[in-house]
């Protein structure tokens, strides 16, 4: 199973156009050997969930710097669940206050990353989390 590639959707929900982080993370994940799809900007929750389904991804990574995370993130989780993709590894980052991160992490998000995160930490975390899931699926 070691040659199975991790498939990731990096998505930008909402109207915010700050894509430096999303594109940097997408590039680094791809360079780390993952198959990465970048959604482009201004995506609705429905568009993101649909792309996750079409691309059959293992991971959805959301990037948001608009402050709308408490409204948009749960709607994305619901849209994924509605497409039977509730078990996708859901993560993200951006300008998200600590207490909101904690709340979202208790609500279907595995882990959220704040400013100053090393991309190598994101790569390692995704690899570990996905490999654990794959091991469970096999068992």
């Amino acid at each position: 199973m070691s040659d199975r590639k991790i498939r990731v959707l990096i998505a930008k929900p909402g109207l915010d156009g700050h894509d430096r982080g999303a594109k940097t993370v997408a590039t680094v994940l791809r360079d780390a050997g993952m198959e990465v799809v970048y959604s482009g900007l201004h995506q609705t929750p429905e568009m993101i969930a649909e792309a996750a389904l079409q691309e059959d991804v293992d991971v959805v990574g959301l990037s948001i710097l608009s402050g709308a995370h408490m409204s948009l993130f749960p709607r994305i989780r619901e849209a994924l669940t509605a497409r039977d993709m509730g078990d996708v590894l859901l993560t993200g980052g951006g300008i998200i206050p600590e207490e909101d991160m904690t709340a979202l992490e208790g609500d279907g998000f595995s882990k959220l990353f704040g400013p100053g995160t090393r991309t190598t930490d994101i790569v390692a975390w995704i690899e570990t989390a996905v490999n654990e899931r794959w091991a469970r699926e096999e068992a």
Partner: peptide, 22 residues
């Protein structure tokens, strides 16, 4: 805020969650 910057009214569906945020 982002809805204004993108030319949408505050009561447009696409503005949900973003009104007055940034």
């Amino acid at each position: 805020d982002f809805p204004t910057l993108m030319g949408y009214d505050a009561d447009d569906d696409i503005s949900l969650g973003e009104v007055g945020q940034v």
